[in-house]
Design a protein around this nucleic acid. Structure first.
Length: 485
RNA sequence: GCCCCUAUAGUCUAGCGGCCUAGGACGCCACCCUUUCAAGGUGGAGAUCGCGGGUUCGAAUCCCGCUGGGGGCACCA
């Protein structure tokens, strides 16, 4: 039997990292088993639809490289893959249950349902529908109060236990008497999640349902529904939730929660992929840097954890730095270019456009200093700006005064002007000799020069920087520094 | 309020009865490298394995209770 798994997002908001992590696990499992990864859009709540949300979700999948074999845009045989285009299917299934006496119409108003719920909670009883419409008399009564279109409710057994098997947690038992007759079809003709997901998973021949743990409590309803239809139930794999630093479900409240936000913060898709894969899954006691292929090779649901994981952005930063360091000059330059050229957050207009070859020469100097691509404009700005803006007092090294610094920089300028070979090695030789000749510590000379040439105290190694900047820029910056002193 | 899940350092985790004086990683600290910052290297602090009972010759590992944390309880998914 070939594995068929699905990611079933609802286009009601941003592609939340927890949500996308579910997609990622499903995808990995499908690829690991050479199975099929399906994307199904669960847009059955018309009121909550958010325009643009579907595109954002698909963008997030594409960004991470989670390609789907069946889904929106594919004409595979199990479609359509958008639930709002499958309404007749759900209606038929609901009708069948109605005909079998396994479901019934309910005319109760939301107001009454709400009142019942409150009353039950007050009585320390489990909240839930009181089944008034399950009896003909009750239904007639309710219908008189509310002649509008009814919903269809599932007729749950009223007693006994039901045990569902979760692949991660094992057997989980629920007391059926505590579960109510849930809604299958809403009065607007749309199905609820419960109906739609059971029907579709069956029709689409899903073999494994891997979804977030928040669904575990509704698993017994689903099991009963599968039984009512006479369908075989897929394997249930409930994934641990991803929490924020305060240990509640990760949300916007914690800062970024959307995968697209992380993309926009300068994280690399492969770093994000690796990081997310390790939230709720691990291979062994030491492995943690995984390429996509490694993950496909090693990912198995047996290694999925049951306990929730806190989203640790510091570790994401580390992963991102690691992946940045692993990029070659050309790839990193390509990745950096759009960030530098960005009108809003990129380099100042006067420093653009960026010369691609010049950028490529800068990359080796900054690669190991970058944690996020978004840091590039700030971190690399001095390479591109015509005029540096900094506090002149930074030019004076510890242990020296302004006059000696001036003399030192004048000598540095003279040396620069006289050096023809602008290579790293030649520059280093020349300036080490100069420090000795002036009787200053190399750190003092190099420090003052670093500020003069970069405008900052923290920068890549001096001679590499001088070399990349080129003689002309260095000379003029040394002059400007002298003028500012 | 009712139901369910869960519990190893600040965080992600290894561990599935003896190999554990609990391993790895992020973060943190120190040192080394060094012209600064990183990166890298080395070392270190940090967990009475939530607590209390069992079971067993032996428990982080199995069982029960408690406590903590989380999730669910819609004509939302």
């Amino acid at each position: 039997m070939t594995v068929r798994v699905r990611y079933a997002p609802s286009p009601t908001g941003d592609p939340h990292v927890g949500n996308i992590r579910s997609a990622l696990f499903n995808w990995l499992y499908a690829r690991h088993t050479s199975g099929t990864f399906i994307v199904r859009i669960e847009d059955t709540d018309q009121a909550r639809l958010v325009p643009g949300s579907l595109d954002a979700i698909l963008d997030a999948l594409r960004w991470l490289g989670l390609d789907w074999d069946e889904g929106p845009g594919s004409d595979a045989p199990h479609g359509p893959y958008v639930q709002s285009e499958r309404l007749d299917i759900y209606r038929k299934h609901a009708d069948w249950l109605l005909g079998e006496g396994k479901a019934y119409h309910c005319y109760c108003t939301p107001e009454r349902l709400d009142a019942v719920r409150k009353q039950r909670q007050k009585e320390r009883q489990p909240t839930g529908y009181d089944r008034r419409c399950r009896e003909p008399n009750g239904a007639a009564e309710a219908r008189e109060e509310n002649p509008n279109l009814p919903v269809v409710r599932f007729k749950m057994p009223t007693e006994g236990n039901i045990t569902v098997n979760d692949f991660v947690r094992g057997e989980v038992t629920f007391d059926v008497s505590l579960l109510d007759d849930f809604v299958l079809l809403k009065s607007d003709g749309y199905p609820t999640y419960h109906l739609a997901n059971v029907v579709d998973d069956h029709l689409m021949e899903i073999t494994h349902v891997m979804r977030a743990e928040e669904w575990l409590p509704s698993a017994p309803r689903h099991k009963l529904l599968y039984e009512a239809f006479g369908y075989e139930m897929p394997v249930l794999v409930h994934l641990p939730l991803i929490l924020g630093p305060d240990r509640s479900k990760l949300s916007k409240r914690h800062g970024a929660a959307s995968v697209l936000e992380f993309r926009d913060m300068g994280y690399l898709p492969d770093a994000m992929f690796n990081f997310l894969a390790l939230l709720g899954w691990s291979l062994d006691e030491t492995s943690e840097v995984f390429s996509k292929d490694d993950l496909i090779k090693h990912f198995t649901p047996e290694r999925i954890l049951a306990n929730p994981a806190v989203f640790n952005i510091e570790k994401l930063d580390w992963f991102n730095g690691l992946y940045i360091r692993g990029m070659d000059d050309s790839a990193l330059a390509d990745a950096l270019l759009p960030w530098l050229e960005d009108d809003e957050h990129g380099l100042p207009a006067s420093a653009r456009p960026v010369d691609r070859a010049y950028l490529a020469s800068i990359v080796p100097l900054e690669r190991e200093r970058l944690k996020r691509l978004s840091e590039a404009p700030e971190m690399l700005s001095f390479f591109f700006e015509e005029r540096l803006d900094y506090d002149a007092s930074l030019l004076v090294p510890k242990g020296l005064d302004a006059d000696t610094t001036r003399a030192m920089l004048e000598a540095a300028l003279a040396t620069a002007e006289s050096v023809d070979d602008w290579s790293v090695g030649a520059l280093e030789t020349a300036y080490r000799a100069l420090a000795e000749r002036l009787g200053v510590k190399t750190g003092q000379l190099f420090g003052a020069m670093r500020v003069a040439v970069t405008g900052r105290t923290a920068a890549p190694p001096l001679f590499d920087t001088l070399s990349v900047l080129g003689k002309e820029r260095c000379v003029s910056r040394l002059r400007a520094a002298l003028a500012a002193l």
